[in-house]
Nucleic acid binder design. Structure first.
Length: 495
RNA sequence: GUCCCCAUCGUCUAGUCAGGUCCAGGACAUCGGCCUUUCACGCCGACAACACCGGUUCAAAUCCGGUUGGGGACGCCA
């Protein structure tokens, strides 16, 4: 059994988007599963559109997702000698020919065909030029492209797709396609095959949008005398309107970096992506890296396209609800130390990080994260909704401000009074703070909720949160007393 | 216009190859309830789908044919 070798060959014409990320992930999973290798190859033959920025963006995206590769990145443009050699070989063997049709001619023919509602492929005008005719046109300095000469055969042309089954076309359906441009630069269809042969790729796992390319590439493998890899075409990811997701029409929401910036846990996002077009066959949905590698198979890739369930302008769900749900699931079940490392980056970015959190206050830090993580959706929430735990300059949300504070003007007096009593407490514990708060409520003849919710508002700025007395302990007496005493500022602001 | 692929709850999907165990299971979302002096978590429950028409069969989500619908490709892009 030879080693399995897969590749991820992005074209650097934009950031890494979720479709590409999912393709990379599937290839990576299968390589890991089979103990094979993953090769990263940047297909930059479209020099017009390729940019350095997008190469970096793709690398960053893969790194963030945790998708690593064993070889590369190779750059396709560095192998144009190979590509051209293959083209010349086929030319010499009569498997390809020079075509002198101009772009204008082709376009005119295509438009005429469109108008007449007829087939619009290449008509083979230059296919049967005699050597003399070719020499004549060449000496006249006419530019030419090299086309592959699709054999005239009766049988069917096809391949066995690992997910779709047998795919077939009759030979005459396939037009002679261009493999080298008139400027001498080789084209994707050729480069891709030549590179896959050189890189000894055994499995080509890519989107269904490549199916017709595969049909033509099968011909190339045959003409080049190379063994064919296993092909597997994955379903596409569409939007709610069933349109292919694209950078152009969807923007940032389909970019991998969007999820990085919005506080997703990388593996949680991979977990979401893999479920788009694949399932393990049982009800498992949450996988560790090892579990997923173990469970993954090509055969269980779905045939039908899936929809990335994103609604523009949705107030509650800024992206696919399932992606958020999976992220939440990881957020509250992952090892707290790992969460701590990820939250550190967020806090650092927001200027909330304190070196002591990694030192003498580490226990406090992790305990606090564990206390508040249940209610959060993303890592960023620790710095926004959870800001009061790490800084004093937190905002008080409008809703609790009105509902829990301004509605009860007496709190202006009561909370500072509570602060005094907390200050005087011999033991600052959950039991004691609770007892004192309840006493105060009784004394003022209000429900304890009035005191508790007022306190929560002033101390955390939030309508909701963990148990009040746990919050008090985490924050510590000093901060609590200070925030309670300061309650006046909210009433002044409101006036 | 031609060719290719696909079709189960709103979404992701199990079940289809080897027809009966499926008046279709799970998850997300939604809605109720329990828990909670907040909000979540957790737990319990509800809502909700085999695109359509034929055929084969004792029996069809599952096999066959057609229809409709959706997607992809048809570049000197990748």
């Amino acid at each position: 059994m030879t080693e399995t070798r897969l590749r991820f060959p992005p074209s650097p014409t934009g950031y890494l988007h979720i479709g590409g990320a999912r393709t990379a992930l599937f290839n990576w999973l299968y390589a890991k599963k089979t103990g094979g290798k993953l090769i990263l190859r940047i297909e930059d033959t479209d020099t017009e559109r390729s940019t350095q920025d997008s190469i970096q963006g793709i690398l960053d995206g893969l790194n963030w997702l945790g998708i690593d590769w064993d070889e590369g990145p190779y750059f396709q443009t560095e192998f144009s000698t190979d590509h051209l050699a293959a083209a010349n070989q086929m030319l010499a063997e009569g498997k390809a020919y020079k075509c002198f049709c101009t772009k204008e001619e082709l376009e005119a023919r295509k438009e005429a065909a469109m108008a007449a509602k007829q087939e619009m492929g290449y008509n083979g005008a230059c296919r049967n030029l005699t050597p003399e005719q070719v020499a004549e046109k060449e000496s006249a300095g006419l530019p030419f492209v090299i086309r592959f000469k699709v054999p005239e055969r009766n049988g069917m042309l096809g391949y066995d797709d690992k997910v779709l089954g047998r795919i077939e076309h009759s030979y005459n359906e396939v037009d002679d396609f261009v493999i080298v441009r008139s400027n001498g630069k080789p084209l994707y269809l050729l480069c891709n095959v030549v590179d896959d042969i050189r890189d000894r790729i055994t499995h080509v796992l890519r989107g269904q949008d490549h199916m017709t390319n595969t049909t033509r590439q099968v011909l190339l493998y045959e003409a080049l005398g190379a063994p064919m890899p296993v092909f597997a075409h994955m379903p596409l990811t569409l939007d709610l309107k069933k349109a292919k997701i694209s950078k152009r029409s969807h923007g940032e929401i389909v970019a991998v970096h969007f999820y990085k910036e919005h506080g997703f846990i990388p593996w949680a996002f991979c977990n979401f992506l893999v479920l788009l077009g694949w399932s393990p066959g049982d009800d498992t949905e949450i996988f560790s890296r090892e579990e997923l590698i173990e469970a993954f198979t090509l055969e269980r890739i779905n045939k039908s396209n899936s929809i990335f369930n994103y609604r523009k302008g949705d107030e509650k769900f800024f992206t696919d609800p399932k992606a958020i749900a999976i992220n939440e699931q990881y957020l509250r079940t992952m090892d707290i130390g790992e969460i701590g490392d990820m939250v550190q980056k967020v806090l650092e970015k927001e200027g909330l990080w304190n070196a002591a959190y990694a030192g003498e206050k580490k226990e406090w830090y992790l305990h606090t994260l564990a206390l508040i993580r249940d209610r959060f959706h993303t890592l960023n929430d620790f710095a926004t909704l959870g800001r009061a735990y790490f800084a004093d300059d937190f905002q008080v949300e409008q809703k609790p401000l009105e509902k829990n504070l301004l509605k009860f003007p007496d709190l202006k007096e009561w909370l500072p009074l509570l602060a005094d009593r907390y200050q005087a407490l011999e033991q600052f514990t959950t039991e004691e703070t609770e007892r004192v708060a309840k006493e105060l409520a009784e004394e003022k003849e209000v429900k304890p909720g009035v005191i508790v919710n007022g306190m929560r508002t002033v101390v955390t700025g939030q309508l909701a949160g963990p148990s009040m007395y746990d919050i008090l302990m985490t924050l510590g007496r000093d901060k609590v007393v200070q925030r309670l005493r300061n309650v006046n500022r909210f009433f002044q602001q409101a006036d």
